[in-house]
Design a binder for these strands. Sequence first.
DNA 1: GTCTATAACTGGATAGAC
DNA 2: GTCTATCCAGTTATAGAC
Lengths: 238, 238
Amino acid sequence: MTRTPDSKSLAPAARKPRAVGRRPKGADNKETATVILDAAEKLFSANGFYGVTVRAVADECGVDSALVHYYFGTKQALFDAVFARRTELVNQDRMDAMTRYEEEYGDGMTVEGVATAFLMPLLDRVRHSDPGWKNYFALVGLVNNSRDWGAKTMTAHFDPVVRRFIALLQRALPDAGTEDLFFSYHFLTGALTLTLSDTGRLDRLSDGRCSSSDIEAIAPRMIEYAAAGFRAVCKPRT
Amino acid sequence: MTRTPDSKSLAPAARKPRAVGRRPKGADNKETATVILDAAEKLFSANGFYGVTVRAVADECGVDSALVHYYFGTKQALFDAVFARRTELVNQDRMDAMTRYEEEYGDGMTVEGVATAFLMPLLDRVRHSDPGWKNYFALVGLVNNSRDWGAKTMTAHFDPVVRRFIALLQRALPDAGTEDLFFSYHFLTGALTLTLSDTGRLDRLSDGRCSSSDIEAIAPRMIEYAAAGFRAVCKPRT
DNA sequence: GTCTATAACTGGATAGAC
DNA sequence: GTCTATCCAGTTATAGAC
């Protein structure tokens, strides 16, 4: 991998020289397993499953590569652990937010309100939290656009929260056809996961005027855009 | 890679047993280079750059792995050739379509019209063409959601056509702020590239009622959705 | 729990016969 | 142009000392 530091920089970052001393203990002693997960999350989000070696993960966090196997077994299991760790947390929050919103507004729900409950627990974490969350979300964006295994992974982890979202939308837009709702959701999730991927493309394209990590600017626009889109597509058809 | 046919099927398809006879010549003699590009396109789109080996590409099309190096040099160069081959073609068509639209409608351009000129040359190829185009577009979807090198690759290949698109939108929506236009474009391209990725997720989520490869159903909705979204986000702000 | 050492194998790439 | 044979760096994973 380090054999092609050439042309397009498709290669992962050159591996750091093996950390000489061990990982410093004491003051900053997150559990070793957590340290490994954080490093793996960062690298997987940038280079995907195959673009990361167990050794690169170990070197990234100054831990011996045998320890990675000690804690997680296989590389695949490490990947799965990375993906699952934060998914549970954020999906629980999204479920709760949607439940609260439905209880409060009942038959007066709006597309904006439902979308806010669905999106904000997620976008809030991108906004305030440690870089670990950003890395995790970038990984979700990458997985969501990967054929076959990517879709299977998304389905396995996100179906319940998405079905709940669509059910609420159906109540907010009683005349909407089911297919229109699914397609509209598809457009929303594409916009969302591209934002989460935070590739820097928008930044470059706009000559720095806009950034895909500027959640303060993106969140209200995403909700406005999606709500208008849903209403346009999900109107009764002839 | 074939070492983990376990859990999540994150592993690429098990390699076929080496084709015994050589690739059949005569009747079906596409150029060898083309055959290799098609195979590489298919595998890269499913598994990304690192998830594909030169040997897997060679086996996929019944060609010797040394031949892949003979024609393309490095694996990186092969990837670049795959990406560039169809990009030129489709972008030329999109440029032409936007130019024709502008010439015909001038100051009477609509968001729907501009979006149609931008999107349809691309979506038309997904609809009617050989599976090679589908594989290529899935690869674009994957690259667009990859950090760093993905964004750089997109910028290098797609910036001119996107800047042209945004310039036309600015004429169709004279009151729009530049940032609102960029963010709205960002949402559109997220929806587009998720569709192109054709991961099968929408199909599964909707229990088969909708498919991300059903372009007849998606294209009009995508244009409706995006146009409504652009108008909602790009209105004059206070 | 952590490290060293190494087994067992896969990867990209090339030299050289035909 | 095409194939065989091979080099060797880098890969996952484990056994076993501390």
